[in-house]
Write a protein that binds this DNA or RNA. Structure first.
Lengths: 104, 104
DNA sequence: TACCTACATTAACGTATTATTATTTACAAA
DNA sequence: TTTGTAAATAATAATACGTTAATGTAGGTA
């Protein structure tokens, strides 16, 4: 038994912050949006096509990610481009790939 | 077959699996349970004390983690010891610490 | 036996999420 | 102006989730 090190310790503030982020990622459509985005900026239209649900649905999920400061966006002409605005989130997504991507 | 070496790409099965795990982790009490457990086996009683809510509440959250195969348990006398049963989950928790633990 | 402790389960209730549909705003081109 | 396209918002209804309180169960002890 290895209990050598002190426990993996979070204080409650860290826990809550992490839980908030995890919750934002924990919906299949939102996670897919994040995976599709990766390090790129992609228009809503293209996100809709790559993720595969209605524009309205995507827009609502984008709003959730936007409001939690996970996504940033920039308007160009009449398109809106979203991108991952949080370096920790990018880190997490890369980690997810390592942990969950069976084919890698 | 697989083109997903360079892009951060999940197939839907991986996405859903990951989202399922994230969802299980994304509640503050459940995340705290996982952090408290770390690599150890801890009795329900001790989890209740360390996490800080009612026994009933903990028991219900433990059931959720158990049913998603995130936690395993063993009975000894009239105590039940829970532990993290999924290596990927342990990996994720360690990652969370790196990403979210401000004080480490 | 009876009693206590540790844990699980259930019910009830309120709240939060979700997808769908319809509407609306913003912008560009004709 | 009118028309078309991109995106956001609003409203609804179905479902899922979370907390509390009460009850149930099994193992240990007197």
């Amino acid at each position: 038994m290895e209990n050598s090190k002190e426990t993996i310790l979070y204080n409650d503030a860290d826990i809550n912050r992490a839980a908030r982020c995890l919750k934002a990622m924990s919906h299949p459509l939102r996670l897919k949006i994040l995976c599709v985005l990766g390090t790129e900026s992609i228009s809503v239209q293209d996100i809709v096509e790559q993720v595969g649900t209605s524009q309205s649905n995507i827009s609502q999920h984008l709003a959730i990610l936007r409001e939690k400061d996970i996504l940033g966006y920039k308007k160009e002409a009449n398109r809106v481009y979203y991108y991952i605005d949080d370096e920790r989130m990018l880190q997490l997504i890369r980690m997810m790939r390592d942990v969950f991507c069976s084919s890698c």
